[in-house]
Write a protein that binds this DNA or RNA. Sequence first.
DNA 1: CTGCCTATATAGAGGCATGATATAAAACTA
DNA 2: TAGTTTTATATCATGCCTCTATATAGGCAG
Lengths: 167, 167
Amino acid sequence: MEYTQQSGPREPDTPAAREEVAEALEQLAFLAVRHLTNRDISFTAASTLGRLSREGPSRLTALASDEGVTQPSMTQLIQRLERQGLVTRVDDPHDGRVVLVAITDSGRELLAERRRGRTDRLAELLATLSPEDEQALATAVRAATPAFQRLVENAARARKAPGTTAS
Amino acid sequence: MEYTQQSGPREPDTPAAREEVAEALEQLAFLAVRHLTNRDISFTAASTLGRLSREGPSRLTALASDEGVTQPSMTQLIQRLERQGLVTRVDDPHDGRVVLVAITDSGRELLAERRRGRTDRLAELLATLSPEDEQALATAVRAATPAFQRLVENAARARKAPGTTAS
DNA sequence: CTGCCTATATAGAGGCATGATATAAAACTA
DNA sequence: TAGTTTTATATCATGCCTCTATATAGGCAG
């Protein structure tokens, strides 16, 4: 790929440049984990609830595979969530083996609350910045969002079909 | 708020703008947890090791408070880390009650390995992007880094002395 | 010495993950 | 139809990780 010079790329995409970006992203991730983590339910639990909210009732094994945990783990997780009233389990009339898991209203409410809490905390943190810093961060985020969206998509794809890239 | 028009801030720092930034950072956190998480040791374990590596031998209670866990949790964590040879415990000659925890060479090596692994995975992910996308991400990251550094500092300060801002 | 404060340890309980295995229903196969 | 295999879920034992409540032991003040 020769430099097409269209919109002014200033540096090549070298391993060193990638490392710099990786470094920054890691630091960002650290902040996020440190300050956005809610201890009421686990990451897998929240992620599973979110999936059930987006995609509707699902099978246990499908959830387990999607969330990257084993089936026994998901069974236990669903049992806990059911005990807390966040999901319900319904037998599938077409297949006596399967159990369909669905999110409850209470589960949806918890998701909304968590979301509010995270956003509030982050906004509080952003408010501690100078207007210039906040502006810089906002501009950067907007510029990076489309690229980042594609990164997440690629990551999701890589998760499903591993071993395509390296070794 | 009137537009000051000094050096081209295009949008004011409204709650809505903050929410947009918060949204993006949350997504980033999700990616990080999903793809950068190493399952060999826990987040607190890794963070504690990192602290010991940066700051030298420390007391159990200091570690617990810095990491935001209880003292018994830290005691158990240190016991596990000691069993794995990642830290050592030395009695303080000046005070018979205290135990100083120090990272071992093996612990440092583990940290380095984890770091390598994360960076590699991230670089691999970045390599799936188009040159334009990667460039956009790199530019954004570089622009945002100073502001983000200060955000992290503020966050650390807020963690030590809470309740200064809201309620 | 008595009593209090501090640093760490222990006990018990629950969430969260694992691998190995059990059970039941469905789907093949002969 | 009977027997086998596969699929979906559950159960068990184990280990990590965190919590609260409590115990032990050293330091210190009177």
